[in-house]
Write a protein that binds this DNA or RNA. Structure first.
Length: 483
RNA sequence: CGGGGCGUAGCGCAGUUGGCUAGCGUAUCGGCUUUGGGAGCCGAGGGUCGUCGGUUCGAGUCCGACCGCCCCGACCA
């Protein structure tokens, strides 16, 4: 256990980033460890953040023509085995239900690690004609993947996610869908979470078990490590052939559908924490923050009534304007304590209101990101705070972008790659001949993997060589250590 | 699952070569004074020392097994 800087405090990032992450999540009351091994309790504050993220995504799914549905938690063993690569990929982490009461089941049931198989079994029944296509469905659900080593939000045995599963008439349409949803994720991460990402294709060894192609959005955290923030898979006809999802096309020929699946998880919460937070705790992106503005009244006995009254008016005004605001009128703690607590919990803006402010007709607004104080006239309160929240979002995004820019380097030799990963972390561009041998060699020596083959910048430069083999590079790719 | 560390009040910790009634800080509760960056004083409550077993006149302390958590590896969103 790392030492705490002071009692009640959290470990500084520079001392131990992992411990900082754990301290922050526990103290901000986003989540804590469950009594159930490998699982966590998502506490109201953390869940409120997830709900806001979920709603923002759900709006985007609906806007792109998708509908929500729900499929069973249990997957009969025979379903799971229909797609060979798929079973093999998930087998080690699947828990099984074998008994009901004392009676053994005739067929054991997997607890879903993902729902491709159960959903495909349903789709096989639903699809007859090209007129039934496309099927554009999303599911919000929990899934279970038994992990050896867990970490709050980033890796727990059970987690929450969203999985989209679509069927299309043509390969082209399915490929378009795969890209469309990847773009939805990218835009969501930037617009709602202030997290810039690098879009690209996964290598053969990193792709989803059962997919033809896997694409991902890759983010970078404050410690320079990479994190996969979302994936979108082109499944081709792998599952439709295994599950007999066939339709009669316009030309009276029976064909297999083309499929996609795509998902993001509660891991994104961890990603937000490690992307924006600092030594004082969380910093939440305003668009999804459960509380965007906290109002702290400051008064003496004599002025208490007046100040509380004014604070209540401010809260009402901001609420009417659709802002998520909370008034911290607790009598048991003093203002300084409240400042620290709400900073720990990452609330983007704090309003301080005291007798002097009331006299002058303004409030004090303080930004979580740099503690900068501004006087805001009461008359322009709503407009100015809206503006400040927007600026705040922009600042977070800008900061994260600057980090990616400064933490992205280029290596032309294996030694250089290893050295950069060791001393700086971050993303490292390097030439790759397309072989799994190179990936394995790099991972062995540096613990870094190919995060993706980015859509932009992956054309090898003139005469570029693979960093390991020295063979001509097929792609210019991004290596990094990842969570 | 391998290597290391830790488990004592809600939280953070101390507890000497085994020895008296298990302590400190903080939080909690009551009272008074306070309130623009983690308030002060006075008083009170709170513990099967992770669990089970063993050694001993006597175990928080020694031994064994198990459980849990954290860190490092292998596997993964």
């Amino acid at each position: 256990m790392a030492k705490k800087e002071f009692e009640q405090g959290i470990t500084p990032q520079s001392e131990d980033f992992s411990q900082w992450y754990i301290d922050t999540i526990l103290k901000a009351e986003m989540a804590d460890y469950s009594c159930v091994r490998g699982c966590m309790n998502i506490r109201p504050y953390g869940y409120a953040l997830w709900e806001n993220m979920r709603d923002a995504l759900d709006r985007r799914f609906k806007a792109t023509g998708h509908q929500n549905a729900y499929f069973p938690l249990f997957v009969p063993e025979s379903f799971l085995q229909k797609e060979a690569e798929h079973v093999e990929g998930f087998a080690p982490e699947v828990p099984w239900v074998t008994h009901v009461g004392n009676e053994a089941l005739t067929e054991r049931l997997a607890i879903r690690p993902t729902s491709e198989t159960v959903i495909c079994a349903a789709y096989a029944q639903w699809v007859q004609s090209y007129r039934d296509l496309p099927i554009l469905i999303n599911q919000w659900a929990n899934v279970v993947r038994w992990e050896k080593r867990t970490r709050l939000f980033l890796r727990t045995s059970e987690f929450l996610w969203q999985e989209g599963h679509t069927c299309h008439r043509t390969e082209e349409e399915a490929r378009e869908e795969t890209m469309k949803m990847l773009e939805v994720y990218r835009e969501f991460c930037e617009t709602e979470l202030a997290m810039p990402v690098v879009c690209g294709r996964k290598t053969e060894s990193e792709k989803f078990a059962g997919a033809v192609d896997t694409y991902c959005i890759e983010g970078m955290l404050a410690d320079g490590n990479a994190i996969q923030n979302g994936t979108s898979h082109f499944l081709g006809q792998n599952f439709s052939k295994a599950f007999e999802i066939k339709f009669l096309d316009e030309d009276n020929v029976e064909k297999y559908v083309w499929q996609t699946s795509w998902g993001v998880t509660t891991r994104l919460v961890g990603s937000i924490v490690m992307s924006h937070g600092d030594d004082a705790g969380l910093i939440l992106p305003p668009r999804v923050a459960p509380i965007q503005i906290v109002v702290v009244p400051v008064y003496k006995d004599r002025t208490r009534g007046q100040v509380l009254e004014e604070a209540a008016k401010i809260v009402a005004e901001l609420q009417d304007a659709g802002l998520r605001v909370k008034c911290d009128d607790r009598e048991t703690v003093r203002p300084g304590f409240k400042y620290n607590e709400w900073e720990l919990r990452g609330v983007p803006l704090r309003i301080e209101i005291g007798p002097r402010d009331i006299e002058k007709g303004h409030v004090v607004a303080v930004r979580r990101v740099d503690r900068e104080k501004t006087f805001v006239q009461r008359a322009e309160l709503v407009a100015r705070l809206r503006e400040m929240l927007a600026t705040f979002h922009g600042d977070l995004l800008g900061r994260a972008r600057a980090r990616i820019a400064s933490q992205t380097r280029e290596a032309s030799t294996f030694d250089e790659l290893a050295d950069i990963v060791e001393t700086h972390r971050g993303f490292v561009w390097a030439g790759w001949d397309g072989t799994a041998e190179t990936e394995a060699a790099v991972k062995e020596r540096t613990k870094a993997t190919i995060r993706n083959i980015p859509f932009e910048g992956s054309e090898p430069t003139e005469g570029m060589k693979d960093v390991v083999s020295g063979q001509p590079a097929k792609h210019r790719v991004l290596f990094a250590r990842a969570y």
